[in-house]
Design a protein around this nucleic acid. Sequence first.
DNA 1: TATTGTTATACTCTATAACTATA
DNA 2: TATAGTTATAGAGTATAACAATA
Lengths: 156, 156
Amino acid sequence: MSSALLDRLLATSSLLQRDMQRAFVGTSLSEPRIHLLWVLQQVGPSTQQTLAEKLEVTARSVSALVDGLTAGGYVVRRPHPDDGRAVLVTLTPLAAGMMARMQEDHTALEAALIDAVEPADRPAFERGLDAVLARLGELLAAEAPSYAEVEARRGR
Amino acid sequence: MSSALLDRLLATSSLLQRDMQRAFVGTSLSEPRIHLLWVLQQVGPSTQQTLAEKLEVTARSVSALVDGLTAGGYVVRRPHPDDGRAVLVTLTPLAAGMMARMQEDHTALEAALIDAVEPADRPAFERGLDAVLARLGELLAAEAPSYAEVEARRGR
DNA sequence: TATTGTTATACTCTATAACTATA
DNA sequence: TATAGTTATAGAGTATAACAATA
């Protein structure tokens, strides 16, 4: 008997994570640093506060990550044009090139995974995945009130 | 247009990870420590070497994890009956109870996720998931030779 | 006053290297 | 010699709290 659905989903998570890590062995880039670079590529130059929200870590942790990435030549801190307190963290050309390649790898992996599924199975597979994702979202929302909800309750 | 397949798989990973973490807020249990306890529940009392292999970390890291879990009252080090060098890390009744509950939650989540998928979609969904898992395994095996393969090559 | 980011401090996880005790 | 585990040391990531500069 094959292993349970949940175990296969967890196995998929594990393999996807390995695939991500494999792409950066030999560089000074760890998973949290790659994540920061990835966000910068997606949304463009950002303040550290914005990065803290996207990465779901404290502003202090972003400072440390940006320090490391600056030392490695992956990002630079530029003054914010409108706000003297803030900086705009910006990818260097080196890092922008790496992230563009990572984006290509991402697209290629997407294609490889779709290709692996029998065409006849694809619609049901995608519906099933969406259903699982939605259910997971509901379960988490039900049991773990969001930050916004906690704040609203406090405000009463 | 909905987001791509790969992004939905990554989103699923992220939500599963959150669900796992949510279960242990308020305790002194971090993700690596929970992982160790989980392995102990699955395979029974184990040497630290065995745990190091299962967790894919160094023996030194296992020492640190076991130290922390011992201090928290979750595991005890018992002498190995046949090997004076080794210890058998064993769950305390406290931790065994927590892990049994975690196993139940795991089973309940499994049922909730299957329930979320339309019965008519389930066979194709499972085939698709298996296909994705297999393809991911192939890609990783092709590009990242296993430890065993590296060792065999060195032995030539 | 509120916000942005840094300095100060501490804890966890990880790793390598050297060492002890046992096989 | 080889293996199991620890001590010593170091680096990364995370967090909270106090502070500086700017809004």
